[in-house]
Design a protein around this nucleic acid. Structure first.
Length: 418
RNA sequence: CGGGGCGUCGUAUAUCGGUAGUACGCUUGCUUUGGGAGCAAGAUGGCCCAGUUCGAUUCUGGGCGCCCCGACCA
């Protein structure tokens, strides 16, 4: 698309009320808008990136048998009362409201209860299992203190998957498949090198769970990394007996700050028991369904990518999550030849299926380059009097600064065959 | 929830108990065109409510909002 049509503008300075790198850069580059504390809007560039991240997660969830659904945000209190999670003493992040006709409602902070409840209508036999359902859905959590930009907000999109299995073995098999899928997601969004499957507490659900932690100074968690095994242990379970169980020595572990980008939990029969989700096995015996839950916050993941990969000039997107693949930057567009050449290049790339942002604004080179660096599109292609004279475009990789002179056909080949 | 800080054009900042300035952005014109240009002319601001005062953006109280540290984080 033409950058002159993009309604967002870049800013030279970050708003003073944002301290976190992710929010500062995403706001400056026009990806997000802050609505209020802990509540952010996604603007055209930000939505494109968010959708890319969601697309990657969706592909990986589908590969392991996930079926996509969309549950409601508004929640009836009953299933939550059954699980004991309606009361504010047990769950302190509820946003609650009421119907005009009377009766309390809640804005869902998670979806174990409604989905377990719903599954009672669909699961009754061993033939109905296993079953895996997931969604990308907006959660509301009334955090006492939201912080760190889009990393911990009060309204956010979460991918939550729930597994329903016949037995502990069947559950474990899927649990491991989900863990593998998670690692693929983090690798695809460019965080593979710095993200570790991390042994952690299970909170109120179970004894243990697995987190996926991305090493970053902006992180809220402290983990102990076993680099050789590509595993880590959360500080909350960093104890002698746990380490012995995992076969780890303290001397092999390195303490690091990290961002929790995903978390998977064995739920056992915690919810199926209280909500009565059972099935009949081959012998006609009634048994509770074994469950698990699996979460990733695409917005938090987006923030983590910015925190982890940005440099002093701005955002650096990995190809799979960038809002556009190529940033065509024309310089001195009062020159008709430059304008024409840029238009032709834009058409060629677009026809080849390449997503292009074309900076067709009447602005000077310095401003355009600075904006381009800030926005972080992977490949910048400069069109100017210089490149016209040379007969080739100047192509600069955002991440590395590597520069190549390419003709139109070489460029099309370069971005469509990598 | 405990503690600390802050609220001035769109953004970032300065000043002051006596008509609020600068930079960037914006509007108009001319020049300029490979790393956030120059000249000229313009528009735009004191979070809200009270109190003190001849006079409050400034002082006091309350409200609302925002940030940071801690606690919490299914």
């Amino acid at each position: 698309m033409r950058q002159s049509q993009l309604f967002t503008k870049t800013r030279r300075e970050a708003p003073k009320d944002e301290v976190s790198k992710n929010a500062q850069l995403l706001i400056r580059a026009g990806y997000i808008n802050k609505e209020m504390a802990g509540v952010y809007d996604f603007l055209p560039l930000g939505l494109r990136t968010l959708e890319k991240i969601i697309g990657i997660i969706r592909e990986e969830m589908n590969k392991i048998g996930g079926q996509e659904i969309l549950l409601s945000t508004l929640q009836d209190s009953k299933p939550w009362e059954a699980s004991g999670r309606w009361s504010d003493e047990n769950v302190d992040v509820w946003f609650k409201t009421e119907l005009k006709s009377g009766g309390q409602l809640g804005l869902a902070p998670t979806h174990e209860e409604p989905l377990t409840n719903l599954m009672r209508d669909h699961i009754s036999s061993y033939r109905d299992l296993p079953c895996y359902a997931y969604q990308f859905q907006t959660k509301f959590r009334n955090e006492l203190r939201s912080k760190s930009g889009i990393m911990r907000s009060r309204e956010f999109i979460m991918k939550d998957l729930y597994s329903f299995s016949k037995s502990e073995e069947e559950f474990r098999e899927f649990y491991e498949a989900a863990a593998e899928a998670y690692l693929k997601v983090f690798a695809r969004v460019g965080l593979g090198e710095v993200t570790y499957r991390t042994f952690a507490s299970g909170g109120s659900f179970s004894k243990f769970s697995d987190e996926f932690q991305t090493v970053s100074d902006a992180g809220e968690d402290v983990i102990y990394v076993h680099e050789h095994r590509r595993l880590a242990v959360n500080k909350e379970v960093y104890k002698d007996d746990v380490l012995a169980d995992l076969g780890m020595q303290k001397s092999d572990l390195k303490e690091m700050k990290a961002i929790e980008v995903g978390n998977i939990f064995p739920l056992g029969t915690r919810f199926s028991d209280v909500l009565g989700l059972t099935y009949k096995d081959e012998n006609g015996e009634q048994k509770p369904v074994i469950m698990g839950s699996y979460g990733i916050g695409p917005g938090r993941l987006m923030g983590t990518i910015v925190e982890t990969l940005a440099d002093d000039k701005g955002i650096v997107w990995p190809e799979e999550v960038a809002p556009f693949r190529v940033h065509v930057v024309e310089i001195n567009n009062k020159n008709d030849d430059v304008r024409k050449e840029a238009q032709e290049l834009y058409n060629e790339l677009s026809q080849a299926g390449v997503e292009v942002l074309w900076d067709d604004r009447d602005a000077r080179a310095g401003e355009k380059f600075a904006d381009s660096d800030l926005m972080g599109i992977p490949l910048r292609v400069v069109v100017s009097e210089k490149t016209l004279a040379a007969g080739k475009f100047e192509c600069v990789e955002r991440a590395t600064g590597k520069t190549q002179q390419l003709s139109t056909s070489e460029l099309v080949h370069h971005v469509t065959h990598v």
